[in-house]
Design a protein around this nucleic acid. Structure first.
Lengths: 134, 134
DNA sequence: GTAAAGGTTGACGCGGACGTCAAGGCAAGC
DNA sequence: GCTTGCCTTGACGTCCGCGTCAACCTTTAC
């Protein structure tokens, strides 16, 4: 198939596929007229990349999976290098989630505090209803 | 104080402060020689921006806080517009954390599956030890 | 013959928050 | 007077994954 069909079947654009090729991830054979020619294996390859990208993998991180597929393995994650990327990504996700939860807690605390202070100013002047403000 | 001192005291660079100014967040008075002149209020302003940036706020999202401070309020989050940004950010953080946890679960599942399949191939040929692959 | 719909390469644009370099002015110490 | 260090503006570079445009070629349909 040609690039337009591959793009459509993979749910992406021709520009994206050419970009993958420029990064060495998706080498293409050429037909006599210079058009890029792809087969079903190439489709699976693109689908593998897209799946990982949806997970938030950078393009470069998909390379081991792609090379694994091109080496003839039935799945992109059938190689040790791919598993290593999985594990590294899990660690990154864990620490990122942890960070975000910490930030969420801090922002939540700031909001609560600011709302309290605003409520203390609003109703009838500076007259806090609790034991704040001594 | 001049820009170098402000940058140092705020833990950032002169380039960053000039960038803030170009975005209209940090207007500077000028000394007779053309040098930018800042005071302690400007320092607090920069610190407010930096704190929010550390929380992952975009620069534009810090604007309400900055305007609140410049309006004379003792805190950048003493204004309704700032509270609105806090609330919006909390929502964004929650959905982002949720997404990341979902991705983490999927990647974890992929890793577990791939490890199982690898273990089934490795030890002594395709001989699964559990009830898999029957 | 020609228009439309695909394809090709090359190159610039984008967004965000700056880094970095160039060419020069100003202040202070020796 | 000269060096050193800080300041000024202006402009280009960075990273990433493409979008978009230009100028041109190939194939197909009418």
């Amino acid at each position: 198939m040609r690039i337009g069909e591959l793009a459509e079947r993979a749910g992406t654009t021709t520009r994206t596929l050419r970009y993958y090729e420029s990064r060495g991830l998706l080498p293409a054979r050429r037909a006599g007229n210079g058009y890029r020619a792809y087969d079903e294996d190439d489709l699976r390859l693109v689908q593998q990349i897209r799946t990982l990208q949806d997970f938030g993998f950078e393009l470069e991180e998909t390379r081991p999976f792609v090379e694994c597929l091109r080496a003839g393995h039935p799945a992109g994650d059938a190689c040790p290098a791919s598993l290593a990327v999985y594990r590294r990504k899990l660690g990154e996700l864990d620490s990122l989630i942890e960070q975000l939860q910490a930030v969420r807690a801090q922002v939540g605390a700031q909001l609560a505090r600011a709302e309290l202070e605003a409520a203390a100013e609003r109703p009838g002047g500076p007259e806090p209803r609790c034991e704040l403000g001594g």
